[in-house]
């Protein structure tokens, strides 16, 4: 289905994307994202913890995608509009697989809908959970700002996510390993796109540099959450199915230092954004803006709990 219009943007965007249609229109052509995949939970991994872990990675991708998609028809030029939509589509594809994986590992994690509801598990998770049940980092959810804000957010996010996915390819869970294998190629492109724009804005005009530094200062305090471990992450990592994000801190720092050095931008000296009594996004404690994001995202689905789409 998606193949017959998949190679359309060849040559319009950077070569990184190649002709692989699944990279940009991923997940548009089939109903069950895990059809035919072995979803047996690996021995030694707690199914509920595996589900919670999948929600963490899946919610990061879903909420980032939601914010990126807000750029649609608003980007500085058509090429960036297309690139941002591409990235949003990649992350949405990752989110679908991870949410479906969470539901398969622990059906108890899926909100209960009226009897006979045809809503699939991935949608029940995306559209019928309350804010407190979402496990994404707060970096993903803060409201959009200017284009510099989008570039910086994506840089921080994709540097950490790429480091994570590279290691997750070795997961004991076959689904996570497969998601990571595909995701690495996608997120490598996202990181590259963000890195190139970071450099361009840093060395473009005075105004672009000022805006970039402002965005970097504003978002830097949210970076720490991506490399701080929640107990579920530690436990799933110990079982061989996940990655302890704290172990990525050195690599993430090194990559960001490299980008900052090449761009001639100082590393911000800002402490991590406080949580509430130590609780942050991974615990389900979010920012004020998150409720509004969910209100928009969930409004149609919730009005039709028995709806077919």
């Amino acid at each position: 289905m998606s193949d017959d219009h998949g190679s359309v943007f060849d040559g319009l965007i950077d070569g990184d994307l190649g002709g692989d249609s699944s990279q940009w229109a991923f997940g548009t052509g089939f109903e069950d994202p895990l059809a035919g995949v072995d979803t047996t939970v690996p021995a030694g991994t707690d199914p509920a913890e595996l589900a919670a872990y999948c929600l963490m990675l899946g919610d990061d991708a879903l909420i980032m995608s939601q914010r990126l998609a807000e750029w649609c028809s608003r980007a500085p030029d058509l090429e960036e509009d297309i690139a941002l939509a591409n990235i949003a589509l990649d992350l949405l594809g990752q989110a679908r697989l991870l949410l479906a994986r969470a539901a398969a590992a622990d059906p108890g994690a899926v909100p209960v809908l009226p009897e006979g509801s045809p809503v699939p598990a991935e949608d029940a998770l995306a559209f019928f959970r309350e804010a407190g049940a979402f496990r994404n980092v707060r970096l993903a959810e803060v409201p959009n700002g200017d284009f510099a804000h989008a570039v910086v957010r994506l840089l921080l996010f994709s540097v950490a996510r790429l480091a994570l996915l590279e290691r997750l390819r070795g997961s004991a869970d076959a689904v996570l390993a497969a998601v990571a294998g595909k995701g690495v190629k996608e997120v490598a492109y996202h990181r590259d796109w963000a890195g190139r724009w970071f450099l361009t804005l840093a060395q473009g005009t005075e105004e672009s540099r000022r805006r970039l530094v402002t965005a970097l200062d504003a978002l830097w305090p949210l970076l720490d959450e991506l490399v701080t471990a929640h107990p579920v992450e530690v436990s799933v990592a110990r079982a061989g199915a996940g990655v302890d994000p704290a172990s990525l801190r050195g690599e993430v720092d090194a990559v960001l230092d490299q980008v900052l050095a090449v761009s001639g931008v100082d590393r911000p000296d800002r402490p991590p954004l406080a949580g509430v009594a130590g609780r942050t996004g991974r615990h389900g404690t979010h920012t004020e803006a998150f409720g509004l994001l969910l209100a928009e995202m969930q409004v149609v689905a919730r009005a039709h709990p028995n709806g077919r789409w």
Binding site: S2, W24, A25, F26, G27, T28, E31, L62, Q66, A69, E70, C72, S73, D81, I82, A85, N86, A88, L89, L92, G93, A95, R96, L99, V119, P120, E122, D123, A126, F127, E296, M297, V299, V300, A301, H304, G307, W309
Partner: peptide, 17 residues
Amino acid sequence: GRAPSLRRKAILLAKVQ
């Protein structure tokens, strides 16, 4: 932003793109 399923969200985003 309001697409009622993740599949429809992907289809719509790809279409607008």
